[in-house]
Amino acid sequence: MLKGVHQKLEAQQTPAFFVRGPSLFSRVIFFCALSVSIMAIDARFNYLSHLRQAFIAALHPLEVMANAPSDWYRDIKKYFSAHNQLVQENYALKQQAFEQQVKLQRLDTIQAENQHLRSLLNGNVPLQPNAVLGEISHMGRDPFTHVVVVNRGSRHNIKAGQAVVDSKGVIGQVTRVYPFTSEVTLITDKELSIPIQIERNQLRAIAFGEGNNTLDIPYLPTNVDIKVGDKLVTSGIDGVYPAGLAVAIVTKVQQNPESPFAKIVSTPVAGVSNHLQLLLLQLPDAKESAVPQPAAAETTEHKKDNINDSNNKAKTNAPH
């Protein structure tokens, strides 16, 4: 009889309206284990990238909906932008176009001359990267990573690894490609590094993103010839970034007595936050990127000329 009472009490401990399947604790353990294993798979293997691509493609209509208000706002703002401003802009653009035309004329002759010299020296034809114009559709949604999302994807022949530039300099590299969009990791992201050269003395180095809008050039000795204000340009060694594109300007050089290396901090020149349009440069073919040794020496010589040229241009532009 005592046993019977006990059974009754047991049954009453979990009344029917409280029973909700497995206990909370077992559920949370199950889901935690599931998410940890997914994280491990995602971090170590590439199995989930297809799933991600399919999901992002399916999400595209939702994304367009979410982007619609800001797009409308931009269109309306454009529509109502004052006549005065348009006239000014038109004038400025005309002037710019004229200046650039003058420069282009010189570029044509220089290019022809360069081609001729190269053919004389049996050198390779320099890379002429094709580019696709893209527009930033939004910044990355993860505040930890420095990523922008561009409205060009695998449908527009974008491939992972392509260099991305704007009118002022290098922005970053395409890291993930989805059907309609692609993710561009900025050079300030701590996962990205870029081979650079100091424009002033052609010193080669590699710049790493620091994750906070600056670049770091580590492992250079304390007596290295880098000054504040030096311009960093791409060296073109990797075959991804064409040589001579502006990357950053050195803002701080610090010698720490405890460390054998100098701490060199620079800020990127490309304005990611205030531009919408950017260029996605096509990856060079593997055949073309294999540049023979003598030709490489020749290119640096040529680059010096270019750099002097651009310095002169900068001076002439200064009074404007």
């Binding site: 889901f31 997914i38 994280m39």
Partner: peptide
Amino acid sequence: CNIGTAWFAGLLVDLATGSLLGQHAL
């Protein structure tokens, strides 16, 4: 709405943000 729903929502957030899959789920 249960832990499973929360987990699934977290997975969707991970997929949408492009962060490491499973961290928001966890």
